[in-house]
Amino acid sequence: MKRSVMDRIIDTIEAIAAVFVGLVAADIFISVMLRRFFSAQIPDSYDFGRMLLGILIFWGIAATSYRGTHITVDLVWAQANPRWKRIIDVFATLVLLFVVTVQTYTLFDKVHATYVDHVLTFDLRLPTWPFFAVAWIGDVSAVVLIAIRTFQLVFHPEDIHDTRSAVE
């Protein structure tokens, strides 16, 4: 079965998020092992961990938003007829699009501020803005994917692949 371009893009975004999950887990595991058994630590482990976790969160938002696999509360939706389910899905996705767009705008301010202010990590004195920029790119990806999902919900609901589709 031939996979669509959108499926390949989503798979790439999910793979990027998975890489950051692995990096965060490795950072935590190695840091704990070094402290416990060797009384040593990775320089800037805390800074790397928190920035990588931020990157992971924003790329995770991108990955889950398009497929609709994020956490939802379906009390009203489950009782609605198909027409109202679609209306609820479109409204919820528009709200999500608005919130993530504002978040992306404000995160860009953070990227710019850390660049201009030359914010550095504590131990190695590395610039932090590249970490924020990678997180921002994940957030931009989320906005684009949520916009595509919104378009599909409105004009082509049959193309939505999640288990909670507007068309049943």
Rank of each mutant, 00 (worst) to 15 (best):
Trp136Ile: 07
Met33Ser: 15
Gly49Asp: 02
Gln103Trp: 11
Trp129Gln: 02
Ala62Tyr: 05
Val32Ile: 15
Leu34Val: 05
Ser4Lys: 11
Ser165Met: 14
Ile148Lys: 06
Lys2Gly: 10
Ser31Pro: 09
Thr64Val: 15
Leu56Asp: 04
Gly68Ser: 09
Val76Glu: 12
Thr12Gly: 06
Ala18Glu: 02
Met1Arg: 11
Ala63Tyr: 00
Gln152Lys: 07
Phe29Arg: 00
Val21Gln: 02
Leu107Pro: 03
Thr64Asn: 08
Thr106His: 14
Leu145Trp: 00
Pro157Met: 08
Glu158His: 05
Ala18Ile: 02
Pro157Ala: 07
Ile57Val: 11
His112Gln: 12
Gly22Asn: 03
Leu53Ile: 06
Leu94Arg: 04
Val76Ser: 10
Arg36Met: 14
Arg83Tyr: 11
Val111Gln: 01
Val24His: 09
Leu96Lys: 01
Trp77Gln: 07
Val143Trp: 01
Arg125Gly: 14
Thr114Pro: 11
Ala133Pro: 00
Pro127Glu: 15
Glu168Pro: 08
Gly22Ala: 10
Arg35His: 08
Lys85Arg: 15
Ile55Thr: 11
Val100Asp: 00
Thr128Ala: 14
Ala18Phe: 09
Ile30Tyr: 06
Leu97Glu: 05
Ile9Ala: 10
Thr128Ile: 15
Gly60Ala: 13
Ala80Phe: 07
Val119Tyr: 02
Glu14His: 03
Lys85Gln: 14
Arg86His: 06
Ala18Met: 06
His156Ala: 13
Gly54Ile: 12
Ser39Ile: 12
